[in-house]
């Protein structure tokens, strides 16, 4: 280390410029806008924490927060379970088979979120593909309410989040020594016992990383809940947008945005004690 750094001070300073120029851009065009959001939340309509008091007094806001927490939790649990299954399978089949599994996961990962929500809407709305087919076959007489409710939102969000669960889990499981489970079996463990007591604990870091990613991304999700919730199931991001565009209520809008921001960073701060966040976000 010392050896590498004993180049002239001037060189080090030159490399610092490479860091500081982008940092200045970030400060002006990103951190400053964020600071404005925080600032407005405590100054509009009047200085003080009046907006934040609404978190404790407004039942409307509490209902939105409860819906958001519930949807995110359900989404995270389902996405993690499905993601675990997919990642585990991918690592326990032949190479070509694995490549195909990853191909479909990545295909979905790269598809536009808007298009995916739109596809669900096409399928699930009352005159959509599913309802038309079911009525055509005479199985139902009234269209089923598949969308514009919490069911539709969770379905769309799980669909979006599964790739985000698979990828960190896969990366983590790839690092697990494949000889350990056979070793446990050789020492007399049942297949389930070997999985439960050897494989699962080893994959815990992956589970934690994937849960953080999925939960945090779900919390601030706008497009899918807005389209599939259809104004009936409203999550916090859509509610914030409504505050600004419909009622021009910047105080409440920025207060909720700040709450969201603080929540996300609190979760990350807690998680940083358990896992290396740099690893979660892939810079290590």
């Amino acid at each position: 280390m010392n050896w590498a750094l004993d180049g002239t001070e001037r060189t080090a300073r030159a490399y610092w410029i490479l860091v500081l120029v982008p940092l200045a851009a970030l400060a002006l065009f990103y951190l400053y806008p964020l600071a404005k959001v925080l600032w407005i939340s405590v100054t509009v309509p009047r200085p003080g924490l009046g907006n934040f008091a609404l978190l404790f007094t407004s039942s409307g806001i509490q209902r939105i927060l409860a819906t958001t927490a519930r949807v995110c939790l359900i989404t995270t649990i389902i996405s993690l379970a499905v993601g675990y299954l997919v990642a585990y399978t991918a690592l326990h089949v032949r190479k070509t088979h694995e490549a195909w599994i990853l191909f479909f996961v990545l295909l979905c990962f790269w598809l536009s979120v808007l298009i995916r929500a739109f596809a669900w809407l096409t399928l699930l709305q009352s005159r959509g593909v599913v309802n038309t087919a079911l009525m055509g076959w005479g199985w139902i007489s009234e269209p089923l309410p598949l969308v514009r409710n919490e069911f539709g939102v969770v379905l769309g969000m799980v669909h979006y989040m599964i790739p985000y669960a698979v990828l960190p889990l896969y990366a983590n499981m790839k690092g697990i020594d494949p000889r350990l489970v056979p070793a446990a079996r050789g020492l007399g463990a049942t297949p389930w016992g070997a999985f439960w007591r050897v494989y699962l604990p080893l994959s815990l870091p992956g589970i934690i990383s994937a849960s953080i990613l999925v939960f945090i991304f779900s919390l601030g999700f706008y497009i899918t809940p807005a389209l599939l919730g259809g104004g009936k199931t409203i999550m916090i991001a859509e509610y914030i947008a409504l505050q600004i565009t419909d009622t021009l209520n910047w105080g409440v809008g920025t207060m909720l945005a700040s709450t969201l921001l603080i929540t996300v960073f609190l979760i990350l701060a807690v998680m940083a004690r358990i896992v290396d966040l740099r690893r979660v976000f892939g810079i290590r």
């Binding site: 610092w16 860091v19 982008p22 940092l23 970030l26 065009f29 990103y30 951190l31 400053y32 806008p33 964020l34 600071a35 404005k36 959001v37 407005i40 945090i216 919390l219 601030g220 999700f221 706008y222 991001a237 914030i240 947008a241 600004i244 809008g253 920025t254 945005a257 700040s258 969201l260 921001l261 996300v264 990350l268 966040l277 740099r278 976000f281 810079i283």
Partner: peptide, 28 residues
């Protein structure tokens, strides 16, 4: 310090879009 800056640079990826959308609007 540089490690901390690099973490900070990841903020736009982590912060929910709706939050910075409000900020961009105000600053822009």
């Amino acid at each position: 310090a540089s490690e901390a800056i690099r973490m900070l640079m990841l903020a736009p990826m982590i912060v929910p879009a709706i939050v910075h959308a409000l900020g961009f609007y105000q600053a822009w």
